[in-house]
Design a protein around this nucleic acid. Structure first.
Lengths: 342, 342
DNA sequence: CTGAAAGCGCTTACAG
DNA sequence: CTGAAAGCGCTTACAG
């Protein structure tokens, strides 16, 4: 059988049907309802299709079936490894079920995700994973009207428009701060990521302030916010500022191990003994945390698990209509250095 | 005007047309050929559409226009920050032109990407970014038959099926090895990532061996391959093995700064003075490299630039049919520690 | 400037 | 078991 190709462009069902001497219906059935087609016919169709390099057109399929198998994910940035980890596990799980994930990075301000959501809706996203809360009421209404299944992640609130599958940034930081208070520290600094429209950072900061407030003794606190994301450089520079601006600080909470890396590095250069003169704690439990000198006390967050659980919830919702239930995942304080304040 | 919604599902052109009292053609034109529609009519259509929350269906659009605005990217893993950086710049550039990027992680073995490519073709990818060479001849034929614009990246070869926009791993490693030879090192080890089907690692390894071979003096060399990717742990453990198995080694090339981190960490723990007793060099110039102790000599690779240039080449090809030309990007050896062998 | 109609590629209810 | 036909939502050449 001589195979004819179109002068350009892809081979479609019609081409395969002609070449195999059957109708397009039979070609389609051979792929999607194989047991509805006589064995020898199906065999021939499949072989012909394979020989011609037929690849189904998923736009046409999506249009016809009203199902795209596309899931959207909106994250602040791929550049931060913790998001990459989460997205990877999310994606890997969904791929098992034939879904493809569109990942959009949109910065840290959750007020600016409207356009990203629109884009994903346009692309036919059947469900959305969003880092942080959906703060914009217009956006909430829009998503509700579409009956769009939405999982918010990386935070945990139980009074919001959409269910969260994440962890409690407030409680985690409270624990971290109380740990430092327990060691006797009274003058602390927190180094945060961008706070604007960022409920994770805001929750951590509130927890930090509240923990100190609740404590009877007189405490002082300082906050340094990174404009540009989570970098070693920010930690390095800020430690130097802290020594100038508030030398009484004996403990520093960094909202990322990356920042803590910079703080430790600067301490070393300035001859500040960690942890005896300065306690430094981080967030994320990145691989390097335990290899730093001294090993970094850090708050392990369930990055891969958030991706996995979110994927599972979405799959159950899409396949069986199972409601997406909020899920509070645990964090773990990895104590690797501990020293009382001097 | 009272807005009717469908009981479920999305609002489409027909709904908007009815609500605005015009034909679907006019609705479509109002969006895509606005100057072909009378001002007041267009105004009304756009307002109605907005009020109803109309979002165009890109599957239908793709089917009709035979254009998906989807680009595919096949990378080993998102977990390695250098790939995340590349993908991010690739994605950001393409987003400016209305393209959306599907990212598939497929491990390090380029022989296993056939399925990923099929999936992306099915999804209507108009062009592909592939990390490494397309080694599989079947896959090459398949892509050629589809006239699929393909950019290979992260490597550079000029005799392959598809153009590369990347850097020369062989030359870069040659330079690195010769630098160490120049310092007097004669007994070296290379710590690689997974080699199977991985032209980047293979090229680096060949360069390592060749550089030593070309050198007149008698050299010894050792290779340790990480099965599980680029981890600190691999570097840490391997340094310990090296001390046992080939204690004459005075210089170690790590094919990732992450691995070098582990080697440095182990050296510190074992009391091995870097760089006086042991030279350690890395790859990638990750942010932490200059903050390590001692600062890490490393080969900076143009991760963001690869993403950007690849995106530009693809855009030019898709918009104007401009042929995708190979582009050899530079690397830079960042010398931060240097010590002659003892 | 506007509308009716064709058609992109696919799947499936319907008829045989 | 198989085929002809309808229709998913969209855009545009064609006709007015």
């Amino acid at each position: 059988m001589s195979i004819k190709r179109k002068p350009s462009g892809r081979v479609n069902v019609t081409d395969v049907a002609k070449a195999a001497g059957v109708s397009v219906a039979t070609v389609s059935r051979s792929f999607n309802l194989p047991h509805h087609v006589r064995d020898d016919v199906r065999e021939k169709v499949l072989q012909t299709a394979s020989k011609m390099g037929y690849t189904p057109n998923s736009a046409a399929k999506a249009l016809r079936l009203q199902k795209t198998n596309v899931i959207g994910a909106i994250i602040p940035t791929l550049d931060h490894s913790i998001y990459a980890t989460m997205v990877k596990s999310f994606q890997d799980k969904l791929a098992e079920y034939g879904y493809v994930v569109y990942v959009l990075s949109c910065g840290f301000d959750s007020n600016s995700i409207y356009d990203s959501v629109r884009l994903l809706v346009e692309r036919g996203a059947e469900a959305l994973l969003i880092v942080g809360d959906v703060a914009d009421p217009d956006l909430t209404r829009y998503l509700k009207e579409y009956r769009m299944p939405v999982v918010c992640t990386y935070s945990y609130f139980d009074n919001r428009a959409f269910p969260f599958i994440g962890f409690d940034n407030y409680q985690a930081t409270k624990q971290l701060t109380e740990y430092l208070l327990g060691l006797g520290h009274r003058n602390m600094a927190m180094l945060t990521g961008p706070m604007q429209g960022n409920d994770r950072q805001q929750a951590r900061h509130s927890a930090f302030l509240d923990a100190l407030k609740e404590h009877k003794s007189k405490c002082t606190h300082f906050t340094y916010e990174s404009a540009g994301g989570y970098t070693i450089e920010f930690g390095e520079k800020t430690l130097r500022r802290i020594r100038l601006e508030c030398p009484e600080v004996t403990a520093i909470i960094c909202n990322s191990d990356v920042i803590a890396f910079g703080v430790l590095s600067a301490c070393k250069k300035m001859g500040i003994d960690v942890p005896r003169e300065m306690s430094v704690v981080g967030y994320d439990n990145l691989e390097f945390a335990e290899y730093l000198e001294p090993p970094l006390t850090t708050l392990a967050i369930p990055a891969a698990e958030m991706g996995l659980r979110s994927a599972e919830a979405i799959i159950a919702n899409l396949k069986n209509g199972t409601e997406i239930k909020p899920l509070l995942l645990g964090t773990q304080l990895m104590i690797r250095q501990s020293s009382h304040s001097i």
